[in-house]
Every structure is written in C-alpha cells, then in structure tokens.
Design a protein around this nucleic acid. Structure first.
Lengths: 219, 219
DNA sequence: TCTGTGCGCACTGTATACAAAGAATACAAC
DNA sequence: GTTGTATTCTTTGTATACAGTGCGCACAGA
C-alpha cells in the first residue's frame, strides 16, 4: 500500500496524462511527439512537458532519435507478449525472494482475497473476480521492498492494465486454483515451487495471447 | 552493436555524468540532489539538469520524494545481489526466447569467444577472460530486438560493470564450462535448458556474493 | 529538366526570471 | 520553559525568450 503521493505538479500530471495517452493508443504507434504542439494541446509550457518526456524515455515509453526527436514506443500484441514474459519471470522471482520470510498476515490476506474471488466466481461476477486477480498480483509486488524490481513491475502492470482492460484472457475457473497453489507454496516457504508456479501461471496466458494473435487478423 | 549516438547535448552529457557519479559512489548513498548546487558544480543551468534527473528517475537511479526532492538510489551489496537476481531471470528469459530461432552464425561467434576465453584461461590472463565473459553476456543481450527487456538489462549491466569492476567473483575454471553448456543448449534450440542453465549460472554468483556479505564486515 | 546553393522555417536546447510552497528560525505570549 | 505564529530563506515549478541547427523549398544557372 503506497502513500497517496498526489504531487499536484504539472510535470507529474503531464507525465501521467501522456503515459495514459500512449497506452490508450491515442497516438498511432511510432508517432512523433512535437513539443510545441503537445504543450499547446495540453495547455502547459514546454518545460514540464520536457521533464515528462525525459521520464517517459527513462521508462521506455518513448524513444529518442539521435536528433532529439521523441517518438512513442510501440505496444502491439508482440510487445505485450514480451512484457508478459518479463512479468512471468519477475513475479516468479518475487515469489522466490518472498517465500523464505513471508509473514503469516500477508498469507492470510491473500487467502481472504481468494475467498472473495471464489464467491465472485460462484455468482458469476467477472468484474469482481478480475479485480481480485489484479489485487493478488499487485499485492505480492508491493510486498517487495522498494527497488528496481518493483518499480519495473509497476510500469509493466500499468501497460497491461490499460492494454488488456477489455477482458479477462483466461477462465477464472482455471486461474483460481493456480492462485491458491501459489499461496500454498508461499505459505510453505517453498521458494522454488512458488517461483515455478507463478511463472507457469503467467506463461499460460502468454500461450493464449500468442494464439489469439495467430487466429485474429492482427492488424 | 548500437549507432554511435553522440548527442552532444548538455542534457545527455549531464545525464551520463550524473549516472556515472552515482555508480562510482561519488555521492554517499541516499544523498540529496539539490538542483542549484549540482548545476553550479557541473557548470550548467538547472534546465538540462532537471531533464537528466527526470530520466534518471525513470531508470531508477534516483528516487523522488513526495515533495519533489531527488535522492540518489542506494547500491549496496544487497541491492547488487537483487540486481543479479533480476539479471539471472532476465538473461534466462533471453536465452529462452532466443533459442528457437537463433542463427548459426551467432552460435559460431559465441563459440569463437569461448575459444579465446579458453586460451586466456591457460595463459592465466584473467583480464582477457573477464572481457570475454562480459562480451558473452552483452552479445546475447544485444541479440534481442530492442525493447524494454534489453533496455532494462543495459542499465543493469551498467550498474554491475561499474560496481564490480574490481575483480572476478567466480573462478574462470568454473564459469567457462557453464558458458559452453549454455551455448550448446542454444545450438540445440532447447529453450528450457538454455533458460535454466543461464539462471543457474548467474545464481551461483549470487550465492558467493551473499556469502561475501556475511563474511566481510560489510560497511 | 536537373542540379546546386542560399534563405527561411520549424524544432529543439539552454538560460534566466519569477512564482509558489515548505521548512526553519526567531520572537512573543502564556 | 514551552508553544504558537509570523517572517524569511531555501528549493523547486513554470513560463518565456533567445540561440543554434538541420531540413525543405525556391530560385537561378546550366
């Protein structure tokens, strides 16, 4: 659970705004970001905009050419699939590092989440289940002491939350038992199993994602 | 192999300068970055400095408080160990993704690298061996199409190159056969094996690193 | 018509000036 | 002595002005 961190600064505002615009596909992929146009469009001067772009570059959302032109990074399905791969091994790693010392109260919270998810499953409330799913993964991520790892996963999660918010990829009846298994492994402080289960859990989604690409016309 | 990308801009210069200062330990860990002081020290105005800081924040080298104060991230041995963990799973992932389609010429190059490493091993030229080692890993990383994955590993490699340049952690006689095994797995296009071997390869260093912390006075 | 050169425009880079917000300090009241 | 408040100082945020650079386009000469 992070502090609210409003940070009412224009820089930060523009940063978030721009990031969401990129992820929502408001730009066609590979679009050029012209500072003056954007600053006019967003109603701010170029100064906060430049900071925002610099930060976005550091996080890999925009790409700078040798002549300092900023282009938005592309997030097609292949890129999303790669991000899932990263997410798989990194969340697996989180489980591995967490398992040896995880506190009981966290396990209890995770289990309570799953109880809620189970009843959502019974009543057929897909949205509630999806929220529990997301919470499961973000909670685990936030258990890691702040470092490069969690920072990175934050940005990866942001991408997927916005890109895949349209629906659930895998059936809840499939993912639910997997979540339970992961929690069990954590509870047993079995680092290897926790890591392996989490990786497999996410990789199953990747298979589906790749198949979806192969089937659909993927434009 | 990346284009030279000089980019003689002050922003970029300051960015690199600052990053190297952080990694070299020119700041005591957790130091506050005061814009005016730094800009005076580096002989530039605050504008390019701010861009540099924003970019460094995006890459996780500096950390911003809720009141916009910038602090340099800490890179003690525990953090380095975590980075090794990330490197392990990410380079493992690279092997996994590369294996199915790796071209013969790349395998050949990697093998030639290992031949050179072997003769360095015989003549006891540790420095030459270390360079071959580094090249082995960076070459594999660069085989990935540019994306978040390689960008990330670039920054991870930068941290370790500067922080651990003092010496080789594991014995060449130990790492050399592991490198060969990894290449064999890639050559056989065995994704699972390549991933697993790479992860184990790097994790063996982590064990040593952690032991080193436990033994030494760790100041 | 093709080519070369020069001018202008569209951007970006940088510095600086000013505003706003927080923190520290000093002073007064109790 | 302690606490509350006001003032000042430090630091950051933002806008704007100006400089430099590369690129396109037009025009002239062959």
């Amino acid at each position: 659970m992070r502090v609210s961190q409003k940070s009412d600064t224009l820089e930060d505002n523009v940063y978030r705004q721009l990031r969401d615009m990129i992820l929502n596909g408001d730009f066609v992929s590979g679009d050029k970001l012209v500072q003056e146009d954007l600053s006019a469009r967003l109603g701010v001067s170029r100064t906060p905009l430049r900071s925002a772009i610099a930060k976005l570059e550091g996080e890999g959302f925009v790409h700078m050419t040798s002549r300092s032109e900023a282009y938005v990074a592309e997030f097609g399905t292949p890129q999303i699939a790669d991000l899932f791969e990263m997410r798989a091994v990194l969340e697996g790693l989180i489980c591995r590092l967490l398992a040896p010392t995880i506190e009981k109260k966290h396990v209890i919270y995770l289990r309570s989440l799953m109880t809620a998810a189970a009843s959502a499953l019974e009543t057929g409330d897909d949205e509630a289940y999806r929220l529990a799913d997301v919470e499961f993964h973000t909670y685990l991520t936030n258990l890691m002491p702040q470092g490069k790892l969690s920072r990175l996963l934050d940005s990866v999660h942001a991408i997927m939350a916005l890109s895949l918010s349209q629906g659930i990829l895998r059936l809840p009846s499939e993912t639910h038992p997997e979540h339970l298994q992961i929690i069990d492994a954590l509870d047993a402080r079995d680092a290897d199993a926790a890591e392996r289960l989490m990786i497999e859990h996410i990789r199953k989604t990747i298979v589906l994602l790749r198949k979806q690409v192969a089937d659909g016309s993927e434009k």
